[in-house]
C-alpha cells in the first residue's frame, strides 16, 4: 500500500455525534487520530475515548469480527469497525456514522431491537415434535454433510445489522423483515432436522416476507461474514413458489431422526481425543 510506510499517520475521524439529552439532531465532530499501519477503526475510536472525548459512545465487544456488535457506516458503507483497517478505507478523512435504517440511541449506537424482534418472529429455531429428546438429548440427529451445506453458509450470520443498513427496501418500509431475519428463516426452512416446513411456508408468505426483496444485492455485498443473505432470500422464494406449484418435495420431509443403531461406530476410532473432564463437580452428563 502506497501510504503504508511503517510510521504513524494522522487521520481525521469525522464522527457523527448525537446525545439525546442535549442535541436536537446529529452533527459531525472531527478528531485527529494517529494511526499506525494495520490499525483498525475500533482502535481509533478507543483512542478518541481515552485521549480526546470520553463521552463518545459505540457498541463493541469481541474486537475480532465474531460478536457482531460494532457494525457502523465507514465512509458511507456498512462495515465492522473491528476488522476494517483505517488505511484500507481512507486517505485522510474517515467518515464514521451509526448504521442507518435503525434509530440512533446515542452517537454510534443503533437500536437493533426491531431487527431482533423480526428475527424472533420468524421462529428461528428448530421446531420438532419430539420435545423430550430435544430437552434431554440421548444422541445427535443424523444429518448428511450435503444437507449441512444447504444452510451452513447462512448459519455463520452474527446479526451485526450491516445488511439491514444496506437494504433499499428497509430504507422506507418498516414492516419488511429484512435480509438478516429472512436469511435465518431460510436457514431453518431447509434444515433437515426441522419439522415445521408447512407452517414456515405459510408464515414466510406474509406481506413482510421475501416479496419485498428485488435483488439490489447490497446485503450480500456488505456482509462481513460472507453469509450472502440475498442468495438465501432468492432460494427461499424458490422454495415457496415451488411448494405452491407442488414442485417441491420438502413438505413431505420427515425431520431427521437419531443416527440408526447399525450406522453407529461400534468402537471409538483411534486418534480421537477423549473429552475433557466435567468442570461442574459431580456432573456425569451434558444435561
Amino acid at each position: 500500500m502506497s501510504n503504508d510506510n511503517g510510521k504513524d499517520q494522522n487521520f481525521i475521524f469525522r464522527v457523527r455525534r448525537f446525545d439525546p439529552e442535549k442535541d436536537p439532531k446529529p452533527y459531525y465532530q472531527d478528531f485527529t487520530v494517529p494511526c499506525p499501519p494495520g490499525m483498525v477503526v475500533l482502535d481509533g475510536l478507543w483512542y478518541i475515548k481515552e485521549n480526546l472525548d470520553p463521552s463518545l459512545s459505540w457498541r463493541s465487544s469481541c474486537r475480532m469480527g465474531v460478536c457482531g456488535s460494532c457494525g457502523m457506516m465507514l465512509n458511507g458503507k456498512p462495515h465492522l469497525a473491528c476488522h476494517t483497517q483505517v488505511r484500507e478505507l481512507a486517505k485522510d478523512i474517515l467518515l464514521v456514522a451509526p448504521l442507518p435504517n435503525f434509530d440512533i440511541v446515542r452517537d454510534l449506537v443503533p437500536d437493533l431491537g426491531p431487527m431482533m424482534d423480526k428475527h424472533r418472529a420468524l421462529n428461528t429455531r428448530t421446531i420438532r415434535d419430539d420435545g423430550e429428546e430435544m430437552l434431554k438429548p440421548t444422541d445427535q440427529y443424523w444429518q448428511d454433510p450435503e444437507d449441512l451445506v444447504k444452510y451452513l453458509q447462512f448459519a455463520y450470520c452474527i446479526k451485526c445489522g450491516c445488511c439491514m443498513a444496506a437494504c433499499p427496501t428497509l430504507a422506507t418500509d418498516e414492516r419488511y423483515s429484512g435480509p438478516m431475519p429472512l436469511a435465518q428463516g431460510y436457514r431453518y426452512l431447509v434444515d433437515t432436522r426441522d419439522g415445521a416446513f408447512k407452517d414456515r411456508v405459510k408464515q414466510l408468505s406474509g406481506e413482510q416476507g421475501p416479496w419485498r426483496c428485488h435483488y439490489a444485492g447490497e446485503c450480500s455485498a456488505v456482509c462481513p461474514k460472507g453469509v450472502d443473505p440475498a442468495r438465501a432470500i432468492q432460494l427461499m422464494k424458490r422454495q415457496l413458489v415451488f411448494d405452491y406449484l407442488r414442485l417441491s418435495k420438502l413438505r413431505y420431509r420427515k425431520p431427521a431422526g437419531l443416527l440408526p443403531q447399525e450406522k453407529r461406530a461400534k468402537e471409538r476410532r483411534e486418534g480421537i481425543a477423549e473429552p475433557p473432564e466435567f468442570t461442574v463437580e459431580g456432573a456425569t452428563s451434558l444435561q
Binding site: V201, S205, G206, E207, G209, W211, L240, V241, D243, Y244
Partner: peptide
C-alpha cells in the same frame, strides 16, 4: 395464514 402473497408473486 395463507400463502396469498406467494401466489400473487408467482
Amino acid at each position: 395464514m395463507s400463502i396469498k402473497n406467494t401466489k400473487l408473486w408467482t
